[in-house]
Structures are given as structure tokens and as C-alpha cells.
Design a binder for these strands. Structure first.
Lengths: 216, 216
DNA sequence: CTATTAGTGGACACGGTGTTCACGATACGC
DNA sequence: GCGTATCGTGAACACCGTGTCCACTAATAG
């Protein structure tokens, strides 16, 4: 039924792993998760993918792990880097990109479920932290460091803190749904933080309306 | 075994609900949740509390609901209001109080598990939002509104956004554990936000030494 | 061809859920 | 005190999902 792979790479003996069934399982995971609103069961996964339960157990430790692999694989390219852009613009775009990812792609809903599952699964938590959260944080942190080097940002900026202030509200609203999570939120977060972290007075490209700003 | 209640209030006929068993169940829930690191099963709950499973099912829809009731009942008094304090001091103390609640009481661990459980339980999510998150947000929002009235804060402050910026990083670090969650975090968050939201120049009582120190 | 690995499908024990039932326990109004 | 209504108990039950096992078939490298 599954005849796609060519066992390229290491010349391992034996029947090669079928990429068709692997992708069918990953697709089934995201589909069911989005439809059902929660992490699907292994049974449902196998049925939907037209695959034996045994196969899933062979390659993944849990249904949440399948879901995580699907998420990470689909959206690992969703981070752009533009070192040529001004720091403030680049950071704003990163935050906007995450907000858009959460609201306009399945990533938001999946992430919400995976974050919940990670509370009782240490390995899943570590994987999401290392492969989802950290890369996006690092990208912003790099831009901030660039700003410090350029002298447009204060030298004593607590980068981790600023990254938290920019990102945490997005995740918080994704989880609790107590306030809208839209594109404007990203820009407003940057506007709120920038006066404090910018070096002295008028700084780089205010991105938005220059409403009587005033730094410390 | 259980003879505590007096059925005071409405003169309802029949045997009154035993407060002793109710509290035993709530205690068992928090104890097991803290020990096990996840929401306990109804079976474990009943065994630990020395109570029949049927009794639990009669009063709560799920184990998470029991846990939520225990959390909300124990910590609903943990919000102080000091309208006499300067706005910045009052807000800082609110954020510090939440940070301390998360790290130095069982509330943090319980909240982490309940937040996870709420992803697949709409009623639990609504209850936590209304009875845990909202009251604490409202308290800070009131202080901010007071500052706007007094003229110490800008009139165009987005209160919801500021509250998110102050609180979200705490919840975010509680969940992901990617950065330390200590008392200093609360003060640093306020320091980061205040220059932007304060009305014009030098503002109300900087609470602490006037420097947001530390680079990463 | 043989060796080796992948995928199948059925079986199993295990544990937790949520419900039902009959029974005893404890309060109220009279 | 007595009836009645409600509470708490303990046992049973079907149901579902998990995780593991096994014998079998399928596909590929050498």
C-alpha cells in the first residue's frame, strides 16, 4: 500500500520506513486535533490515518508527540530574518508574525493543546521549549542585541525580560481568551516597551503614529 | 462518621451535606495534585479522602473541578487593596504578590495543572477566568484607572494591555520554566512599563532604586 | 536467495470513567 | 418519637483508551 521511500542516506537493510504512512499519521493528528479541540487518541489517529495502532506506538511515545512533530515540521520555516531592517521594525514584524501564526493558521489551536499536554509530559515540554519557543525567542533576542551593538538600544536592557513582555501576552491571550489577539496587539506591545529600552530620546523608525512620545 | 453541619440557612429537609467530607475531598485533591504533579483521578481522590467515589461524582463534574474549588477557596483572600498607596507602589505590590503566590505557595503548581486541564474543559476555563484571573486583573486595572484619574498616568493608557504585560510574563514563566520567576521580576516589569504610561516626566514614587539593571 | 526492518491486525490485561442500585445514616417538620 | 427527604456508602457494571505482545505479511539491501 505504501511505496514511496527509497531508503536514501544510510544504506540500512530491511524495509524502509514509509513516508506516506508517516505523513498520513501527522495529517490525521492535526486534523483530529483541530476538529476535536483536544489531543486525539491513538485509536482515532490510527483509524483516521488508515494505519495500524502498532505502527504509531513504534515511532512515537504518545499522541501528543505526534501532534508536536506535525506542528514543528509544518511551521519551522515561519521565522524570517531581515538583518537589514531597522531593529524596531524587525522585532515588530517577529511579534506580528507570531500573532498571525496563532490566529490565522492552525498553529494557535494546536499550540494551545500541546501546551496543555506538556504539563504532564516532561519530554514534550522540553521539546516544545527547545524547538518552538526558544528559536522564536532567540530570533528576537538577536535583533535586540543588534540594537544594543548599534547603540539604538540601551546597553543595560534585560533581553530575556523584554522578550517575555513581547511574547507572553500573546500566549496568555491564546490560552485564556480574555482579550482579542490581533495584529495590532503586536505593534502596541512594541510601542509600550520601546520608550524604555531605546537609547535616550528619539529613536529608530517609530513604525506607527508618533503620538507625543517621551522616553525616560 | 461525619457530624459537623447544622443545615443552617434554608430549612431544607433531609440529611445535610457534611462539611467534613467536603473539606476532606478538597484537601485530598490539593495534596495529591502537589504530590503527583498532575490532576488526580477520582479513584485516588476518594481513597485519599476516605470517601465513596459516588459522593464526589454527586457534587463535582470532574477531578479538575474539585481541584479548582480547592484552589479558589484557599486563595480568594490573597488580594489586598490599598487605595491609600501610590499607584505605582500598589500595582507593583499586586504583581509581586502574584509572583510570590506562584512560587512560595502551592497555588503556582495547582494553577499550572488547572490551566492545562482547562484546555479541554470549557466550564473549568470559564470558572478560572472569572474567579481567578479576572479578580486579580481587575484589582490592578482599578489602580491604573485611579492613576489616570489622578493625572499621574497618561489618559490614553490601554489598561488591558498594560495588565497583560504585567501579568502574562509570570504565567508564561510558570508554564514554560524558561526563566526564573522571582520577586524581582515583578519590580522589573513595572520599571519597564512605567516610563511609557506615566504622565509626562518624573512620576510617582519609583518604589525602588531608579535603575532597571542587568543585561542578559 | 537471505537477512533485516516496516507495517498489520488481533488479542490481552490494566486502569480510569461515569452510571446505577440498594442500603444505611442523619437531619428536618410535624 | 415518626415519617420523609436527602446524604454518604460500597459494590457492580459497561465503556473506552492505553500499552504491550505476537504471528503474520510486505518491502528492500546485499
Amino acid at each position: 500500500m505504501n511505496t514511496v521511500s527509497t531508503n536514501r542516506g544510510a544504506g540500512k537493510p530491511g524495509r524502509p520506513r514509509s513516508q506516506a504512512t508517516r505523513l498520513a499519521i501527522l495529517d490525521a493528528a492535526t486534523d483530529l486535533a483541530l476538529a476535536g479541540g483536544c489531543v486525539p487518541t491513538i485509536d482515532a489517529l490510527a483509524t483516521r490515518a488508515g494505519v495500524s495502532r502498532t505502527t504509531i506506538y513504534k515511532w512515537w511515545p504518545s499522541a501528543a508527540a505526534v501532534l508536536a512533530e506535525g506542528l514543528l515540521e509544518r511551521f519551522h520555516e515561519s521565522i524570517e530574518f531581515d538583518d537589514s531592517l531597522p531593529v524596531r521594525t524587525a522585532v515588530t514584524r517577529q511579534v506580528e508574525a507570531l500573532a498571525r501564526l496563532m490566529t490565522q493558521t492552525p498553529a494557535g489551536a494546536l499550540l494551545r493543546q500541546l501546551q496543555a499536554a506538556s504539563a504532564s509530559d516532561e519530554r514534550l515540554s522540553a521539546a516544545l521549549l527547545a524547538r518552538w519557543l526558544a528559536p522564536r525567542r532567540d530570533r528576537v533576542a538577536e535583533h535586540l542585541a543588534r540594537g544594543i551593538d548599534q547603540g539604538t538600544l540601551r546597553a543595560d536592557v534585560d533581553v530575556d525580560l523584554v522578550v517575555d513582555v513581547l511574547f507572553a501576552p500573546l500566549y496568555h491571550r491564546l490560552v485564556w481568551g480574555h482579550a482579542p489577539l490581533d495584529d495590532a496587539l503586536a505593534r502596541r506591545l512594541c510601542d509600550l516597551v520601546w520608550p524604555t529600552i531605546a537609547a535616550d530620546v528619539s529613536e529608530t523608525t517609530p513604525t506607527s503614529h508618533p503620538s507625543s512620545r517621551r522616553a525616560s
